[in-house]
């Protein structure tokens, strides 16, 4: 299996503070990969630098044979990566339909088919096409944020904390959707604090701590790992 994304020796700083320290990881094509870790571990910074919202200090980001480091966001998005930003960030004063269309902003071809695809995945969004996005519930906004990202027809979709601030039952729904999207051939890079759910959904997991990747393994391996259990799953180490 080939890797769709390869990150090598990535460093990201904000005004002298190093958020990401020399990390390397790969995302194999067609899989769900998760990056877990506590607040401030550098997970979001990693995603933001991959999509070009933050310029990496050094390092390589290879996406399908092409180098992304240093490119502006619009060019990165048009190559087939989208970020579902943390905290959903839908456009509150625009309708649901307009939000979806903005997702396809970089594309010039016909949208009908993809609009239908997204509406099939999220029937709610079709019902609410003319409603302002700001009036949706938290769960619906998360659906919209994911649907909006899908409208750019990405090969790799990166999600930053999709379960943030949602009720457990809604979180379950979000992860069902993530699996469904993955089944349809989209590679997923998931950043989560909800380690339990994320590792269950993932083929491959990385654990980040204070800017470094400290552990790697399949989702199941990490779920069983004693240190991960102690640090992220809230289960005490067995003596």
């Amino acid at each position: 299996m080939s890797n769709i994304l390869e990150v090598k020796n990535l460093n990201v700083s904000y005004g002298g503070i190093k958020a990401v320290k020399d990390i390397s990881f790969v995302v194999p094509k067609g899989e769900v990969v998760t990056l877990i870790g506590a607040n401030g571990a550098g997970k979001s910074s990693t995603l933001r630098s991959i999509v070009g919202l933050v310029k990496p200090e050094s390092g390589n980001i290879q996406f399908k044979e092409g180098e992304l480091a240093g490119l502006p966001t619009d060019q990165i998005v048009s190559r087939g990566i989208t970020l579902v930003p943390e905290g959903r960030r839908v456009f509150p004063d625009m309708t649901v339909l307009e939000n979806l269309k903005i997702g396809a902003y970089m594309r010039k071809d016909d949208l009908e088919e993809d609009l239908k695809w997204v509406h099939d995945l999220f029937p709610r969004l079709k019902e609410r096409s003319w409603q302002l996005a700001g009036t949706l519930s938290g769960g619906e906004q998360q659906m919209l944020a994911i649907g909006r990202a899908l409208m750019s027809k990405p090969e790799l979709i990166m999600m930053d904390e999709p379960s943030l601030g949602l009720a457990p039952i809604i979180v379950q729904g979000v992860f069902d959707i993530i699996r469904e999207i993955n089944k349809q051939g989209v590679t997923i890079l998931l950043v989560e604090q909800n380690a339990n759910m994320a590792l269950k959904a993932a083929n491959l997991g990385y654990v980040m701590e204070t800017g470094r990747i400290t552990m790697t393994g399949t989702g199941m391996e990490l779920l069983e790992n004693e240190e991960v259990k102690a640090a992220y799953l809230g289960k005490a180490k067995e003596k």
Binding site: V51, L53, P72, T73, D74, I76, V77, S78, T82, L83, P85, R89, V90, F91, P92, D93, M94, E98, K101, I102, G103, Y105, M106, R148, S152
Partner: peptide, 23 residues
């Protein structure tokens, strides 16, 4: 037009608009 939609997206949320690929 699509430009108008991009303008409104910038008004609503600059960061999200940028993440959608709007320059």
């Amino acid at each position: 037009s699509t430009y108008g939609r991009a303008f409104k997206a910038i008004r609503d949320d600059e960061i999200a608009a940028e993440a959608m690929g709007i320059n």
